[in-house]
Write a protein that binds this DNA or RNA. Structure first.
Lengths: 153, 153
DNA sequence: TTTATTTACATAGCACACTATACAATTAAA
DNA sequence: TTTAATTGTATAGTGTGCTATGTAAATAAA
């Protein structure tokens, strides 16, 4: 259980139960799947959530603005937007001033599911932190924010 | 910044900066990429890490044992093992008693990189939590363990 | 003993992350 | 003004997760 309980260096191993990276990865998969099940009825998938959040907050952004805000690679964003366009969640319009850029607009379908999507995401978060006190909860959030700041450099 | 600062319900939005799921997902991507860069010289990729950890700890396990320990789907494990076999990290041998099962053994190549891989993973964790006190660190780890327990049901 | 169920594994198909690369439009330098 | 560098987007290729499905071997039920 604890590395210090090992009786020799030879059998002392990297412990996945106390590795931050390992735990983060495991958590991420569980959150992702929890969200997937809840938003499936809405016709969206977890990978579309960040872009939807940004566009619900402010419709009509360019791809590069979304890339900046969501901290994903440009190619990832382009592919995600392709699927969202295919699924009737967004349309891409020409930018009036910049011939390279395109402006992303939400369709009525995407606008309509906003509140249900918020509810689904909140449910996942609440379930995950059900046994946390309010103080623990905000401390956990703060720890994660700090970690992200550090890793983004 | 804070939902309570919004002056009306209408413009109050789900905040990605305080959503546990959003933060976990972002963290996971950053850890993943940090590890990727460090273990690339070793000839392995982050998705192989969990299986390698389990096999470094105990060589010669079946696929179903790994699936159980790593909490991934059987298909995910099978595909990961396919790539590991292709990359010369493991070999699959017939199980002496069970004709369905196969036993996974590490190759010398996989055994040889163990210590360097531990070092790489430790570096990522230490970098991510560089500004955490020992107490904060263990609290963070405990929060994540609790979250995983809850989400696994 | 024959049949049904369960178990161990493989594969197909898809989502979503990445790097590497290409190209056209804009902006800066010469 | 012509050329060079930068910017916005798209696509190809790959890794790693998922679900759904198929198959052979082992076990349970009949």
């Amino acid at each position: 259980m604890n590395a210090f309980l090992c009786n020799s260096y030879e059998i002392m191993t990297f412990d996945h139960m106390t590795s931050a990276g390992y735990l983060v990865h495991h958590m991420a998969r569980l959150f992702f799947e929890g969200l997937r099940k809840r938003i499936e009825p809405l016709g969206i998938v977890p990978g579309q959530f960040p872009a939807l959040l940004a566009l619900w907050q402010q419709d009509g952004q360019t791809q590069s603005e979304l890339v900046e805000k969501l901290d994903v690679e440009q190619a990832t964003m382009a592919n995600t937007l392709n699927r969202m366009e295919r699924d009737g969640l967004i349309i891409r319009c020409k930018h009036p001033e910049d011939g390279r850029a395109k402006i992303i607009y939400l369709t009525p379908k995407a606008k309509a599911i906003r509140d249900d999507a918020y509810t689904a995401a909140t449910e996942v978060n609440d379930h995950a932190l059900a046994d946390f006190s309010n103080e623990e909860r905000s401390q956990f959030i703060e720890f994660m924010q700090r970690t992200i700041m550090t890793l983004r450099k």
